[in-house]
Simulated scan of single mutants.
Amino acid sequence: MFVIVRHGNTFEAGEPPRRIGARTDLPLTVAGLAQGHALGTHLAAQGWNFTQVLVSPLARTRQTAAAILSHLPQAPQPQSCDWLREIDHGPDEDQSEDAVLARIGAEALSAWDESAVPPPGWTVDAKERIAGWRTLFEAPEGPVLLVTSNGAARFALIAAGLTTASDMKLPTGAYGVIDRNAGGAPMLTEWGRRP
């Protein structure tokens, strides 16, 4: 079983959101830390004993993982995993959503949200990400906790052949679960769940 968590909030309430990627290493807000603790409480209540914890190298994912793990004292130490890093939004990095839409258009943004097709100028490294997820999914270990970003999480669905979700986007402070069915094939049991 693979529990995929998106980091908590990095923008204060009322602050206009911006397109934040690999080059902007924002810390969590107070609300973002609370989301991490809520996830930790929720995951502990599920009784899952993680054998591996993988995190993106960015502060927001490491802080979310630390908040979660404070509720899971038996979990192993998190390991930084480069293929979980956030994507690079190129010219749209740190820009408002209005500015991003004005540059790329609604169709390009929908293609990203629904099919992981990157807009022009974004650096995604899709092949590397899909290979990383597939290698992980083939490992017999589990359950595995992964804390990453929205940009990286969507490639788990592609790697597992589970692209039937109408929206690949994970909200902040939410998680998804990819498990295996009786035949060993990946199956999606949760996506976008917030505790």
Rank of each mutant, 00 (worst) to 15 (best):
F2H: 13
F2N: 10
R6N: 04
G8W: 04
G8I: 03
N9L: 11
T10E: 04
F11L: 08
P16W: 02
R19Q: 13
G21D: 04
A22M: 02
A22H: 08
R23S: 08
R23A: 08
D25R: 08
L26H: 03
V30H: 05
L33C: 03
A34H: 08
A34Y: 00
A34D: 12
G36M: 09
H37T: 12
A38T: 07
H42P: 01
A44Y: 08
A45G: 15
Q46M: 15
G47V: 12
W48S: 13
F50I: 12
T51K: 13
S56V: 00
S56H: 03
L58M: 11
L58P: 00
L58G: 01
A59P: 00
A59L: 14
R60L: 05
R60G: 06
R62L: 08
T64F: 09
A67S: 08
S70C: 06
H71M: 11
H71C: 14
Q79A: 10
I87V: 14
G90E: 04
G90K: 05
E93C: 08
S96D: 09
E97D: 13
D98I: 06
A99I: 07
A99R: 04
A99T: 11
V100I: 10
A102L: 06
A102V: 03
R103F: 01
I104C: 10
L109S: 05
S110W: 05
S110Q: 10
A111N: 11
A111R: 12
D113R: 09
D113S: 03
D113T: 04
A116Q: 02
P118D: 01
P120F: 02
G121I: 11
D125V: 03
A126N: 06
R129Y: 04
T135D: 13
F137D: 02
A139E: 14
P143Q: 12
L145C: 13
L145H: 09
L146S: 08
T148I: 00
S149H: 15
A152N: 03
A153W: 06
A153N: 01
R154I: 11
F155V: 03
A156F: 09
L157E: 02
A159L: 07
A159M: 07
A160Y: 11
A160F: 10
G161P: 03
G161W: 06
L162I: 10
T163A: 08
T164M: 08
M168L: 15
G173Y: 04
A174I: 02
A174H: 02
Y175L: 15
R180L: 15
N181C: 13
N181P: 11
A182E: 15
A182M: 14
A182T: 13
G183C: 12
G184E: 15
A185Q: 14
A185D: 14
P186T: 10
M187P: 00
M187A: 12
M187C: 15
T189C: 07
E190K: 12
P195C: 04
